[in-house]
Nucleic acid binder design. Structure first.
Length: 215
DNA sequence: AACACATTCAACCGCAGTCCC
DNA sequence: CGGGACTGCGGTTGAATGTGT
């Protein structure tokens, strides 16, 4: 899963081995990293400074947290991404121990792909689904009233359909939040949860797209 | 078992911003 | 002010690993 080690102009590239990690860790623990360009020279590494910095920042620095992201973390990533865009370092600042690279990878590997899947499914389902939604968009409804959501769970119309059909110009991140809800098929709980998390307010979601949702 | 395709994630690349002379 | 050196960031790559056929 890593690039094979190779040399170019005397500089080693690719995967780091344990000995290199130890050299880098020991050197920084002793002397710090005031100058990344000169650091490999003094640490006895055949790497460029950039590579050393990346290795330290993403993997060797104490306190780095690895492993799976929790659902809460994923939701927060989506919220922050909506606010900040692809400012991975700013997003990572909200996750102690997580690196921007980790979050960026997670975003591309999980969240974006899931969206693509959902979009594909939405196209298919909307073709065969004859349900219609009546909304009152553009009512300039205050944000605190946005969450009004009336759902008849006996009908075949539920949050799933709303989200998958993307009928409201709904923000992608909000849709992801709703999709992830355990009672996605019913919807009311997850919408409330999203409201509780201030998703709508934070995402410039209020008023512009939603009035009262009537189904 | 063997192959093909998909996924993951560590690492590289290029660019922009900052600092210093 | 201009230019070079350096750092940090975001986009992208590519090889190992996983999964399906």
């Amino acid at each position: 899963m890593v690039r094979a080690a190779s040399f170019r102009n005397g500089i080693k590239r690719g995967v780091w081995d344990e000995e290199e990690d130890n050299k880098l860790r020991d050197h920084i623990n002793r002397y710090g990293h005031l100058n990344w360009r000169l650091l490999p020279l003094f640490a006895g590494l055949k790497r460029c400074g950039k590579s050393c910095r990346l290795r330290w920042v993403n993997y060797l620095k104490p306190g780095i947290r690895r492993g799976n992201f929790t659902q809460e973390e994923e939701h927060l990533i989506m919220q922050l991404h909506n606010q900040l865009g692809n400012k991975w370092s700013s997003i990572a600042a909200h996750f102690p121990g997580r690196t921007d690279n980790d979050i960026k990878n997670y975003w591309h590997a999980h969240i974006q792909k899931r969206r693509a899947r959902h979009k594909g499914a939405a196209t298919q389902s909307s073709d065969s689904n004859s349900s219609t939604i009546t909304t009152c968009p553009n009512q300039n409804t205050p944000a605190e009233n946005i969450g009004v959501f009336e759902s008849n769970t006996d009908s075949d119309f539920n949050l799933h359909n709303i989200v998958e059909q993307e009928c409201y110009g709904m923000d992608e991140n909000v849709m992801d939040l709703l999709r992830d809800s355990s009672d996605y098929e019913i919807g009311s709980w997850s919408l409330n949860a999203a409201i509780e998390q201030d998703c709508f307010n934070n995402m410039n979601f209020g008023g512009e797209y939603y009035g009262k949702l009537e189904i």
